[in-house]
Design a protein around this nucleic acid. Sequence first.
DNA 1: CTGACTGTTCGACGAATATCTTACAGTCCG
DNA 2: CGGACTGTAAGATATTCGTCGAACAGTCAG
Lengths: 114, 114
Amino acid sequence: MSNQVAGGSHRAAPVHTDPEEVSVLTALSALADPVRIQLIRELAGSADWTRSCGSFDVPVGKAALSHHFSVLRGAGLVEQRDQGPKRVNRLRREEFDARFPGLLDLLLRADGAD
Amino acid sequence: MSNQVAGGSHRAAPVHTDPEEVSVLTALSALADPVRIQLIRELAGSADWTRSCGSFDVPVGKAALSHHFSVLRGAGLVEQRDQGPKRVNRLRREEFDARFPGLLDLLLRADGAD
DNA sequence: CTGACTGTTCGACGAATATCTTACAGTCCG
DNA sequence: CGGACTGTAAGATATTCGTCGAACAGTCAG
């Protein structure tokens, strides 16, 4: 019986950026991509920590996918946590909203990606 | 005395895009550039139709500048009108706000470009 | 331990894009 | 008209960015 106790994972923890430290330019650049828009929308429609990286229906390989999540982390949009072999995600909605009020709403309300 | 009457200019009128027809992706892409952010900010701080294209303090040549204005027009952010040899600009604030509420405010309130 | 699975990293490639230089087209003034 | 000025267009170049394939690392089940 292995409780998920101390010792933890031996994997490099994902590097996160606090939304408060994110520039407007970085935020807009992160959002100005069709794949990332789709990721954010799917993520917004799911409960926190329920979606692993590979569970998204995007038309790119896993290498590109990993890159996109890296960009999203760097923009303070997504938080990740290791859960067994998977890396589960959470949209940092409140925190990002505090930094850029209305921006996420705008993206999520908009009809179609383009 | 030449009133600026009919007959008008013999110059190709600038092509504008209605903000209503602009996709989120296009809007975000247009805004995700340091030079264009600066243009919009300067424009927001000036009265309508008072700034010609060449009157902006941006670190690019006039060819690149012309390109940036083209992108801004295509995103429904800027309206242009020919005035003698100059092309004067106007930020389409209300129209753009109607399509993407809060987006321009966000850009204009933010401290520093990055 | 071995094998299946998940995700990251690295190197390379192609496409999109930002930029410059040069040439050109209008507009206005003298 | 001719010259100064403003902006656009076209071509060339360079950089950025998204993508893939392959190799690698960590986790878990058997």
